[in-house]
């Protein structure tokens, strides 16, 4: 018993039929081939599956695909524009915020949700925004620095 849904993924309208118990992360990874969204626990604990749903960071393992009907989804694959890394992606690369990279897509999207709302966050705000995204590799320091730097780049870009 599949259900038809219509949604926008990374700016592209998508029509699909999904089973009622399929999670959004399964739908994105298995049906859409968007494997940049990672699956680390399936329980809402690790944040590796974070995507933006109508601009808000959500754990896509806790959202059913049917719940995304009519929504705008942004995954890590939709962040770079015209082959150019988004400032957050660039800062993660430049600042050494990536090691194994498994937390990175979710981390970057949580950071994006933060910066969209608070272009000039404090360190504590940054740490709080990513506190649902676990990283076992980096100790977070370089991630926090990268998000701070990206915020600056984005602000500068918007001012000029």
């Amino acid at each position: 018993m599949k259900k038809a849904i219509q949604l926008t993924i990374n700016g592209q309208p998508v029509e699909a039929s999904v089973s009622p118990n399929q999670t959004l992360v399964q739908f994105l990874r298995d049906d859409m081939g968007l494997t940049g969204t990672k699956h680390g626990c399936g329980l809402g604990d690790c944040g590796a599956c974070t995507v933006l749903l109508d601009g808000k960071a959500v754990n896509s393992c806790l959202v059913l695909a049917v719940q995304a009907d009519g929504c705008q989804i942004l995954t890590i694959e939709g962040l770079a524009e015209n082959g150019k890394l988004h400032p957050l992606q660039q800062a993660f690369v430049d600042k050494g915020a990536i090691q194994c990279g498994f937390c990175t897509p979710g981390m970057i999207l949580s950071a994006k949700a933060l910066l969209d709302e608070k272009p000039n966050p404090t360190e504590l705000e940054i740490r709080t925004a990513i506190s649902g995204n676990l990283c076992r590799c980096t100790g977070y320091q370089k991630i926090v620095e990268a998000i701070g730097e990206a915020a600056e780049v984005i602000r500068f870009r918007e001012e000029s």
């Binding site: 990874r29 968007l34 494997t35 940049g36 969204t37 990672k38 699956h39 995954t75 890590i76 694959e77 962040l79 770079a80 890394l85 992606q89 660039q90 993660f92 690369v93 430049d94 050494g96 990536i98 990279g101 498994f102 990175t104 897509p105 970057i108």
Partner: peptide, 21 residues
């Protein structure tokens, strides 16, 4: 030096493939 990792862009864009991908 402080050279950025060579796999950084692939990992930052979700292109990097892990076993489950």
């Amino acid at each position: 030096t402080r050279a950025p990792r060579i796999d950084g862009p692939a990992k930052a864009t979700g292109q990097a493939k892990y076993a489950d991908d």
